[in-house]
């Protein structure tokens, strides 16, 4: 069972539907006992950075999630969820994130349309179990205005070209981030979630 952390008002149902499709049981929760018992934690991608960190702080989940991460529990951050793993974000005023990963979240430069919205391709940077059964021409669905910058290149599994090279999949031990929405990326996204399932079981 996977715990999907409920920290906002957006669409997390689609994530649960997608997880169902690849045979992952999940629960949308903020309950520590439930999270502790689960095989992995997903931080979904809804809302704004500052609101999300405040919501996690208010529910006293920030330090708890840090403890779980330190114990080696797999954490998947999707879109904003991935951004929360970094040191800070400038969205809505500079706000501290979990700091699991080196890097800062900044607004996508304005020489391209913002938000970055639509299907973009993944460029492979290194091997990962996440690539299993993936085609070379993998397109996934992005919708975001902020992106991780100054990241540790060793953590970079895939990037996507949009003005700058945007970190698309990152991994550092048990911490995995996807800047796009695998739950909205058709068969490719479902394959990535299935690969994540294999990694945690």
């Amino acid at each position: 069972m996977i715990s999907i952390i409920d920290y906002g008002a957006g669409n997390i149902k689609s994530l649960q539907f997608a997880l169902n499709k690849v045979g992952i049981d999940s629960q949308i929760t903020t309950d520590e006992t439930t999270i502790k018992k689960s095989d992995a934690i997903i931080l979904p991608g809804v809302g704004a950075f500052q609101d999300a960190m405040h919501a996690l702080d208010d529910q006293e989940l920030t330090s708890f999630i840090k403890q779980e991460a330190a114990r080696g529990k797999p954490l998947l951050g999707i879109c904003l969820g991935m951004q929360l793993f970094y040191e800070s974000s400038e969205e809505g005023g500079v706000t501290k994130g979990f700091g699991f990963l080196t890097g800062k979240v900044k607004k996508i430069p304005n020489n391209v349309k913002v938000p970055h919205m639509g299907w973009n391709n993944l460029i492979k940077h290194r091997n990962s179990a996440l690539w299993k059964q993936m085609t070379d021409e993998a397109f996934v669905y992005f919708v975001h205005s902020y992106a991780a910058t100054d990241v540790d290149t060793n953590t970079l599994v895939a990037s996507t070209p949009y003005g700058i090279n945007i970190p698309a999949i990152v991994q550092q031990n048990n911490i995995i981030g996807m800047q796009f929405h695998p739950e909205k990326s058709g068969a490719t996204g479902l394959q990535l979630l299935a690969n994540f399932k294999e990694m945690i079981t």
């Binding site: 539907f17 997608a18 499709k21 919708v143 739950e183 909205k184 996204g189």
Partner: peptide, 11 residues
Amino acid sequence: VEQVAAEIAIP
């Protein structure tokens, strides 16, 4: 809307 979200994995 709910049925569509359950059935399809595109935005």
